[in-house]
Amino acid sequence: MTDEAARTDPATATGYGEHPPRVGFFTDTSVCIGCKACEVACKEWNGVPDDGFDLLGMSFDNTGMLGANSWRHVTFVEQPARPEPRRAEAVDLGLPSFDLPGAGTGEEGRTDFRWLMSSDVCKHCTHAGCLDVCPTGALFRTEYGSVVVQPDICNGCGYCVSGCPYGVIDRREDDGRAWKCTLCYDRLRDGLEPACAKACPTDSIQFGPLDELRERAARRVDALHEAGVSEARLYGESPDDGVGGDGAFFLLLDEPEVYGLPPDPVVPTRDAPSMWKHAGLAASALAAAAVSVFLGRGSR
């Protein structure tokens, strides 16, 4: 394998020799209808427990966020539409009008708005913060390039929770261990696609080899731009971003933060050399201080 392949293919970098191509999700939010079939299919297949009947009172989203018990999360953003260029209006000549009270339908006072819906999921990063910081080896890189927790190894230290720049993985309260999307590792090994992609009725969630998905996504963005949807953009598809590219990337219709995604996530490990260097300097300072306080003459 070339250096380039080792840099961009996490399974190769991990040391897998022969391995299947890296797979992932392309979630095209422009065709998401917010049906939450993905959330349900994920829970059903993976036996993920429910987390109570909790109405959040902000939108049709009552899941709120990804977590130990929600491995897919459909966001609902309700926002005023961009102001359309107005057609020329009739000129008001200032004549008295005689509208009857209640004759209006209310339509004229209505403002246009749009709904953005997006099914969020673990990004299965090329450089995964959760995987880097896990001290037990419970988190591992699969031959498909995905990142999976082994529940029989995890001791619930919680480091991965703070290591994730997307706020995906979390510890389950009554269980003590960390949980997240496995990209349906069990289904992949049987040649099946993940449950969420299988259940998605509009093909908003597309599963496949990452290279293919990236090409398909680029074509889709071009098509949307041609159709006048200038705000369409890809999120997480670039291998040059702070996490080396996501195994699960998105087509969004607004800034990522509007969907609760970080605009420019960076794997915390990237600054590790600088951190250890400063810790080394601080440790040396402590050692030097400890030696010198015993060298002074002083009153014993």
Partner: peptide, 23 residues
């Protein structure tokens, strides 16, 4: 005692991982 599964504390000793400050 801060672990989610304290009885598994010794799982820390099954790997030595330079990328994990906790290891």
């Amino acid at each position: 005692v801060d672990l989610g599964r304290p009885e598994r504390f010794h799982h820390m000793l099954r790997v030595a991982k330079p990328s994990s400050p906790m290891s």
